[in-house]
């Protein structure tokens, strides 16, 4: 359950990361449309909520909130490193 919660947090932050113009075009090779951006953001918030539920289920009411914030921070750090330091899958498109 805790592992699932952390995975969920990573997923949430990854979706947030991919909803940013630059990272989206760099990683997925396509331009980000406004509708797509909104969909990604919504999915990300949903994952944040699911992560909270999982955290409470895994750690109980007292530690759940702490674990939730910890998991989100961890996810953020992981996604930050991955998006910025992993070799780019697609070449950076020069902005027009």
């Amino acid at each position: 359950m805790s592992v699932l919660c952390v995975l969920c947090a990573v997923l949430a932050l990854l979706l947030f990361g991919l909803s940013m113009d630059q990272h989206h075009s760099q990683r997925l090779g396509t331009r980000l449309s406004a509708g797509r951006k909104q969909a990604l953001r919504r999915a990300a918030w949903l994952a944040v909520g699911l992560c909270l539920v999982l955290a409470f289920a895994a750690k109980g009411a007292v530690y759940g909130a702490i674990f939730w914030l910890g998991a989100l921070s961890f996810g953020a750090a992981l996604v930050f490193l991955a998006l910025n330091l992993a070799p780019a899958g697609c070449s950076i498109k020069p902005p027009s």
Partner: peptide
Amino acid sequence: RFADDGLRWLYFLCGIG
């Protein structure tokens, strides 16, 4: 002091941050 290993790692990583 309450933290089990998983949570302790999160604390540690945040501390490094």
